[in-house]
Design a protein around this nucleic acid. Structure first.
Lengths: 334, 334
DNA sequence: ATTATTTTTGAATACGTATGCAAAAAAGAA
DNA sequence: TTCTTTTTTGCATACGTATTCAAAAATAAT
């Protein structure tokens, strides 16, 4: 039960070689004779040697760690995202430092931590960066990708679902199925995500001659969807369809409608966004817009890898389409 | 736009002191005169200095990183757990390396990564360790706490909900409300969690003279709950109540019952486990056993802190009670 | 004032690895 | 064989910090 940590020096001594050679076996994989390599591996195995990633990080200036700062992790969409990022990055040899942010702007001291730990890159989901934060990352040579948000004309790459397009398509679909009285339950208005969905939705409706969209502002939670739908449905307005900013909100809206004695989709059509697994549950069978999570994750990782290697980090914006998943929460009213 | 990283040496130079003194200001907080401290802080601020946690980790042999390996992150119970661990540990100055495991036993190479990065401690949720893994952590002086699982007579501390007690209480409750025909939808049988719940449930029922419990084996997913309930309800057996291994499973079971034209709770009582947020949604209004997540997380972190500081890591097992949350999925049949 | 005590400081070193460089060994060419 | 070329190896050093030790400065005691 040796308490002392075993280092490359110990391995070197046991194998009768220099520390450099041990390093070459476990690191760069540079030329090492087959004989010595075997001696070294045997010695390492016997001693239970594991390279010290911290020491390696210090000398190489690459930690192989990626910071991932998330928000709204309670929204089932994000655990899925987290899992996919983990899998994708693990297979490339990267590790995840997880942070949970509660604010629309990632806080300065959260950024400090990422810088202190010299992460090679950062993925930010569902949140933005102040311009001072931008500078700090840049100065410390840390690549950053925004996921599901973007900043126009910034130096930051971003990957997200094409929300504007999706909003349009959803409007088209509702019109095509004979709806006439529309409502939208949004997320917080300061997010590009929600604004783009709203814009696409409203503009497309306007093109069809519908200018009156009832809007309620929520916060992407079940409770806010429930409350917003109740408000909408209890108002004097006539409403035959609600487009919800995300699925959780939509589920809340459906339950609110039910609680008022309305039947979905017969009395009210509801459409969501994300396509979380619960959307397919029979109780809800929610028609929704599927975010192309796999493509988004892959794209994000790819961008990250590029930016970590390149000198000049030229920002690029990737808007991926997604698709409408038709289930049973929208009725054809024609 | 300086590309070179700024180090404590740079700060020292600018402030006209030695590197040691800078280190003392940002590190131990040892005696430093007020005057020099201010000079140093000013210089650091001007240069945008951030201590390098990697270098610090190398010399102190404390990385202030905790590995958290999770499973079933798609089960809404776990994002909540993750968030709470993050918050609790962040306020103590620790960072989280997130790993997603897919197996009942954490894999050897996942452990290797944690050792390479010299995490100070590890939290493992919903999974176990092989005995060789145990040795490796021990040898590398890494504290480990199991969360929601335990190994009998091991050197590992564990924190979990007292599942045996909960199973008993749930049985008592169902008996008290006049049920006579019981079923249990379990998780995988190799988990202590599910077995303890089952044992408590069955033993308590037996005490009341009920020896026949229909059991279906699931995997803690919605789909498995749906399928298991369907099997149970379509069998010739008469069943008036189902205890489900967790909430997600219970929701699946409820939907299965509905799909067969049964009404919950009138025709069938369903009871869950966890008390995830969805359990309180009006569509389900699930009676369930609330795991004391806050207490469990606090207890885990406390244990971890102790074990990281003590020489002799004596294992301790903490079973926390939890409580029955009564909603509307169980009917009083008396 | 002088001495004793405490506080503050800097020089030197260590942590465990990767890597440039030159020497040594091996392989190939003649 | 002898000379070139290539491959393999070890030495020495660097990464950025914390910390021991002894010297210096400041403070207290006499």
């Amino acid at each position: 039960m040796t308490k002392k940590k075993v280092t490359s020096m110990d391995v070197a001594k046991l194998a009768g070689v220099s520390q450099s050679t041990v390093s070459r076996v476990f690191g760069s994989g540079a030329n090492v004779s087959e004989k010595k390599r075997n001696q070294i591996l045997a010695a390492a195995d016997r001693l239970g040697y594991q390279p010290n990633a911290i020491a390696r990080g210090l000398i190489t200036n690459k930690t192989k760690m990626i910071g991932i700062v998330m928000r709204n992790i309670q929204n089932p969409f994000y655990p899925e995202v987290l899992e996919k990022f983990y899998t994708k990055l693990a297979e490339k040899g990267y590790h995840l430092i997880f942070m949970n942010s509660e604010h629309n702007l990632v806080e300065e001291d959260e950024i400090s931590h990422l810088i202190e730990y010299h992460v090679d890159g950062v993925i930010i989901t569902d949140a933005l960066l102040s311009s001072s934060a931008v500078k700090r990352f840049l100065k410390n040579d840390i690549a950053v990708i925004l996921f599901n948000r973007y900043i126009e004309n910034s130096n930051y790459s971003a990957v997200f679902c094409d929300n504007y397009f999706a909003g349009q398509e959803i409007a088209n679909y509702l019109v095509r199925t004979g709806h006439k009285h529309f409502a939208f339950i949004s997320g917080p208005l300061e997010t590009s995500t929600t604004m783009d969905r709203k814009k696409g939705f409203e503009e497309s409706l306007a093109k069809h001659g519908f200018f009156d969209v009832a809007v309620e502002i929520g916060n992407y939670s079940y409770e806010s969807g429930y409350a917003a739908a109740k408000t909408l449905l209890q108002s004097k307005k006539q409403i035959d369809s609600i487009f919800c900013g995300n699925d959780i909100t939509a589920l809340g809206a459906i339950d609110a409608a039910k609680s008022l004695g309305l039947r979905v989709p017969n009395d009210l059509s509801v459409i969501g966004f994300d396509d979380i697994s619960m959307a397919s549950w029979p109780s809800y069978s929610l028609t929704t817009w599927k975010q192309p999570v796999d493509a988004m994750v892959n794209s994000t990782v790819e961008l990250l890898m590029n930016e970590m290697n390149e000198e000049e980090k030229k920002a690029s914006i990737h808007a991926l389409p997604g698709e409408l998943i038709i289930r049973d929460s929208v009725k054809d009213r024609l």
